[in-house]
């Protein structure tokens, strides 16, 4: 007997890196999470050639959804050109043969770490958000099985208590990213640590959002045209970050979410967080070619 007789003939890896059963698992749990918006579904999270905590949850969703014609965009805190974003983008392209893009309007699938692009997404686009901590109740209930009962009973009083405490201590709601939001009037989710600025973009949006936590092995979704309402007191309105009046020092665009760049003299400069929006703005100024799409915010206000 030869060694060759004991092994199977050589086969290419499964399309898109994940094997068929891993992808089936992902698809089933995605469908479930779409059926019950905002409800966390546990799933069997596979190994991918990347450390847990670096977007493995999002990557598994992306690898399951892509086909050879899906144009993929990957952003990390709004930027297409960070090392992490570039690595994930190259990996998906290599194992699935997909075309890539930085243009939000061209993308079929956008995998993102903690930002929603500024241009309005369409119903043919999917946003995949990487989630480090999927459980919004963790800070008020460390016991996971009690937390699950609380979700089942829609027992969310403690989430408001957390906001109450912030107002009592600091005079205002301090919750920044991961602002707890009620999905479809039923489940409270943490919309991954996207800034407060991005939460209203999810409300009744045309696109599908899938949120996936690889380490914690949970998936949840905001299907198209679903209500996403940040938890607020009836007499304390929801406030997004004060970025409406800021101007990007590199591109000159104004009225979008900015990254703060501390300067040597103690002041701050600002750069638009959605890097591709900045690039498009510069291009439009240089050659007059307009490639920018409609945005959720106009003049710094949600429209």
């Amino acid at each position: 007997m030869k060694l060759a007789d004991l092994t199977k003939p050589w086969e290419a890896l499964s399309y898109g890196f994940l094997d068929a059963s891993a992808k089936r698992e992902m698809r089933r749990k995605m469908l479930k999470s779409i059926a019950v918006p905002g409800c966390q579904m546990p799933y069997a999270s596979r190994e991918v050639p990347m450390a847990r905590g670096w977007g493995t949850g999002g990557l598994q969703v992306s690898l399951t959804l892509v086909n050879p014609r899906t144009r993929v965009k990957v952003i990390d805190q709004g930027a297409d050109d960070s090392v992490n974003a570039a690595s994930i983008r190259r990996f998906i392209a290599r194992v699935a043969g997909t075309p890539t893009t930085m243009d939000t309007l061209e993308a079929g699938l956008i995998q993102s770490r903690h930002r929603v692009p500024e241009e309005i997404l369409r119903d043919d686009q999917v946003l995949v958000l990487q989630v480090p901590n999927p459980e919004p109740l963790r800070s008020v209930q460390p016991n996971m099985s009690i937390a699950r009962q609380m979700h089942a009973d829609a027992d969310y009083g403690r989430m408001w208590l957390q906001l109450y405490e912030q107002i009592v201590r600091s005079g205002r709601v301090m919750q920044g990213a991961s602002y707890p939001s009620l999905v479809h009037g039923r489940h409270v989710m943490t919309p991954s640590p996207i800034p407060r600025w991005d939460v209203p973009k999810q409300h009744m949006a045309r696109h599908l959002t899938i949120l996936s936590a690889g380490r914690e092995k949970r998936i949840f979704a905001v299907p198209p045209f679903t209500r996403v309402e940040p938890l607020v007191f009836s007499d304390v309105p929801y406030k997004v970050e004060d970025h409406g009046d800021l101007t990007c020092t590199r591109s000159g665009t104004r009225g979008y979410f900015m990254n703060e760049i501390p300067q040597n003299d103690g002041t701050s400069a600002y750069e638009v967080s959605d890097s591709e929006w900045g690039v498009k703005t510069i291009r439009a100024a240089e050659d007059g070619g307009e490639t920018r799409g409609e945005t959720w915010y106009k003049d710094g206000k949600m429209s």
Binding site: G157, W160, L161, Y164, I167, F233, S234, D235
Partner: peptide
Amino acid sequence: AERLLVAGERSF
């Protein structure tokens, strides 16, 4: 306040 929140009060 927690008690009142459980009963559905939502005005700060």
